[in-house]
Simulated scan of single mutants.
Amino acid sequence: MSCTATETQIQEREDFYDSPYLAEHYDLFSARFWEPERLDVPIYLEAFKQARKAHDPTSTHPFIVLDVGTGSGRVLSGLVLGACQDAQVDLADDDIEFVGLDVSPHMLSRAAETRPIPRGICTSWVLGSALDLRAIPLLKGGDAVKVDFLVFAAGGIAHLVDAGQTEAFLREVAAVLQPGSGRAFVSFMNAVMDSADEESIDPVKEQQELPSGKFPGIVYRTINASSEIVGKTHIDRRDILVIKKETDGSERVLERNTISTRLASWSPEEFAGMVQATGLEIVDTIKERVETYYALKLRG
Rank of each mutant, 00 (worst) to 15 (best):
residue 214 K to V: 07
residue 138 L to W: 08
residue 49 K to I: 10
residue 140 K to A: 05
residue 124 S to V: 09
residue 244 K to Q: 15
residue 160 L to V: 00
residue 112 A to D: 12
residue 217 G to F: 02
residue 51 A to T: 13
residue 266 W to I: 05
residue 252 R to E: 04
residue 66 L to H: 06
residue 257 N to P: 04
residue 206 E to V: 07
residue 210 L to Y: 13
residue 268 P to S: 05
residue 142 G to F: 12
residue 139 L to M: 07
residue 190 N to M: 06
residue 249 G to A: 04
residue 276 Q to T: 15
residue 79 L to F: 04
residue 166 T to V: 15
residue 210 L to D: 04
residue 170 L to I: 01
residue 87 A to G: 07
residue 216 P to R: 08
residue 91 L to E: 11
residue 248 D to I: 06
residue 57 P to M: 03
residue 278 T to Y: 11
residue 44 Y to T: 00
residue 22 L to W: 01
residue 46 E to N: 11
residue 99 V to M: 08
residue 19 S to Y: 08
residue 196 A to R: 15
residue 101 L to C: 02
residue 170 L to T: 01
residue 287 K to I: 02
residue 184 A to Q: 04
residue 197 D to N: 13
residue 59 S to Y: 03
residue 268 P to A: 06
residue 276 Q to A: 15
residue 242 V to S: 00
residue 238 R to V: 08
residue 55 H to S: 14
residue 173 V to T: 10
residue 67 D to R: 08
residue 243 I to T: 02
residue 285 T to D: 08
residue 89 V to Y: 05
residue 66 L to M: 04
residue 292 T to E: 06
residue 221 R to Q: 12
residue 209 E to I: 09
residue 156 G to A: 15
residue 170 L to K: 04
residue 4 T to K: 12
residue 97 E to V: 15
residue 84 C to D: 09
residue 140 K to N: 09
residue 99 V to C: 11
residue 112 A to F: 08
residue 279 G to T: 00
residue 143 D to S: 09
residue 32 R to C: 07
residue 96 I to E: 01
residue 7 E to Q: 14
residue 185 F to A: 07
residue 292 T to L: 03
residue 162 D to K: 15
residue 208 Q to C: 10
residue 277 A to F: 01
residue 56 D to V: 03
residue 292 T to K: 09
residue 209 E to G: 10
residue 215 F to T: 12
residue 237 R to H: 13
residue 92 A to G: 15
residue 284 D to S: 13
residue 102 D to S: 13
residue 39 L to T: 14
residue 193 M to L: 09
residue 261 T to P: 00
residue 263 L to R: 12
residue 14 E to R: 09
residue 197 D to P: 06
residue 12 E to I: 08
residue 265 S to M: 12
residue 207 Q to F: 01
residue 187 S to H: 07
residue 31 A to G: 09
residue 168 A to P: 02
residue 265 S to L: 07
residue 193 M to S: 09
residue 286 I to F: 08
residue 175 A to V: 05
residue 150 L to H: 02
residue 141 G to W: 09
residue 298 L to W: 05
residue 22 L to V: 02
residue 130 A to R: 01
residue 227 S to N: 11
residue 125 W to K: 08
residue 168 A to I: 06
residue 107 M to Q: 12
residue 49 K to D: 05
residue 69 G to V: 05
residue 245 K to N: 11
residue 98 F to R: 03
residue 202 D to H: 09
residue 248 D to L: 05
residue 116 P to R: 15
residue 23 A to P: 01
residue 12 E to Y: 08
residue 275 V to Y: 00
residue 117 I to M: 15
residue 115 R to P: 00
residue 277 A to V: 03
residue 259 I to R: 00
residue 103 V to F: 00
residue 176 V to W: 05
residue 230 V to Y: 11
residue 291 E to I: 13
residue 129 S to Q: 11
residue 177 L to W: 08
residue 158 A to E: 01
residue 241 L to W: 10
residue 203 P to V: 13
residue 100 G to C: 10
residue 53 K to W: 04
residue 279 G to C: 03
residue 164 G to K: 02
residue 231 G to D: 14
residue 247 T to K: 13
residue 245 K to G: 01
residue 203 P to K: 10
residue 151 V to L: 12
